[in-house]
Write a protein that binds this DNA or RNA. Sequence first.
DNA 1: TAAAAATACTCCATAGGTATTTTAT
DNA 2: ATAAAATACCTATGGAGTATTTTTA
Lengths: 301, 301
Amino acid sequence: MNLRDIEYFVAVAKSGHFRIAAEECYVSQPTLSGQIKKLEEELGSSLFERNTRSVILTAFGEEALPIAKKILANVQELQSCAESLKDPYQGILKIGIFPTLGPWLFPRLSEPITEEFPHVQVHLLEEQSNYLIQKLQNGELDIAFLALPQDIPGMKEIPLFSESFWAAFPEKHSWSQKEEIYPDDLNGENMLLLNDGHCFRDQAIEICYRYGAEERKQFRATGIETLRQMVRMGSGITLIPRMAIPDFPEKGIRYKEVSGADFKRNIGLFYRTTHPKSLLIEDLAKLIKGICGIELPVKSI
Amino acid sequence: MNLRDIEYFVAVAKSGHFRIAAEECYVSQPTLSGQIKKLEEELGSSLFERNTRSVILTAFGEEALPIAKKILANVQELQSCAESLKDPYQGILKIGIFPTLGPWLFPRLSEPITEEFPHVQVHLLEEQSNYLIQKLQNGELDIAFLALPQDIPGMKEIPLFSESFWAAFPEKHSWSQKEEIYPDDLNGENMLLLNDGHCFRDQAIEICYRYGAEERKQFRATGIETLRQMVRMGSGITLIPRMAIPDFPEKGIRYKEVSGADFKRNIGLFYRTTHPKSLLIEDLAKLIKGICGIELPVKSI
DNA sequence: TAAAAATACTCCATAGGTATTTTAT
DNA sequence: ATAAAATACCTATGGAGTATTTTTA
């Protein structure tokens, strides 16, 4: 069966004339007659009673007509749906981000994004990176922020920006007295770290290993805020991503850049190479780079 | 767009594999790939994101899938509807009959019809012949009982039976004394007749004209029962179709066949030559002939 | 006789096939 | 290297055309 045949059927039913219906369908009368006949044979029942004077619907035709119209309406719906989704700068964009970045990055992005792409609705998901990758691969997410490097087959990677890690320590800690902190000062320190699964934990461990610091084993924090509270209560020192550091003095805790160190994470945007909205995503990446490209120039807070 | 393409789309969406979907659709993988591509181009949006590892629906594909399924379900409905209506000995049969025959003919037919054609539902319409013809022509009726002769283009005619007209007169009328009534006895009589529009009126008028009877102008009856009551009340004499005469004596009124007369009407069944259930209708006509073919042999009541 | 649908036939677009290439993991 | 989809190219079905016939009011 063919959709065009169904159009022919509806046209004949509407006009009650093969010739007129043929004109309306922009085909010749024999073509239309032939297709109607084929359709009737295919269905096994005739749709019309016809002679040279009149064309009237059979009982079956009468029942078939509303169904046929429904089919055509659904096809119409499909087409207009396609039409409205054609524009890549429009529709829902499902963005994933990991929990040690999301709460500080997103507040800075939401305004500019809605301004630049007013017809895009952002749906945000905050989960640990491995889940983000999964959902990116199976299509539950359109794009995800991930810490570099990543080697995910089928994904396009757009490096966005670097973010340094600062030392965070209690006000009472001896480091408060120091003019400068150097990487080697980490040697022998006990560092508070996050739970497993956080990419930030892995990055911090890498630094500990490099400079001879130990993980403080009694507790692992579930997130940056917990970490921060633990430091404030004097449980130890840690590293904090630059964005998570407030731009005003905080009671009980001090933050300081580590002089000469290259403590940082690189953040990139990932999307499936096959994604139909790559245009939008690339533009979005440019926007984000413009906002987060230059790091804040302060040395300590 | 093509219904088969939509089937392909749904199949790929279901299995998430072009090759497997192709197998399920009994076509080759390149054919299916080509048709999907064509469909996507036609709609202007891609339905799938695909690479060699995975096939996932785009946002548009996600929206299109339920619509596509709806279309296929409707096509299914159309086909099963055709299937169930294929049998001509099944379904609704709209039968028209005129009011001076229906009330006496139908009670005799309904039982045998439902017995012989248990899957046929009879919808009955009782109207004057000209309306019946109209509705027969425009398809509102499947068949109609009409008095012969009729020349209706496009209609098949099946003669069914003849029905005689008997004289009906008040008990007090002089005819009650007569052994026999002859056609010439009508000469000079005033006859009660039906309203315009009844075919039975035309037949009665024809007989009046032939034998010198006059129409009694003061009243015209709206139906056989009115006519009967008028006769009973002594308003005059009339003719009554044989079937409308009760098989028991009635107070105040007498019925008598007119000896040697050929007062009768011929009843036939009509249907459009193009009607798809001609098989059923012809069988139905045979059944009716079997029931009404032989006239009742009584001479007077 | 005239108007409408049906038939006969011809042509070409395209759905479908096979063989092969490309792509991405 | 392998598995999957895409491409290239050929074939054949069938949709569409024109000319003509049939039908029936």
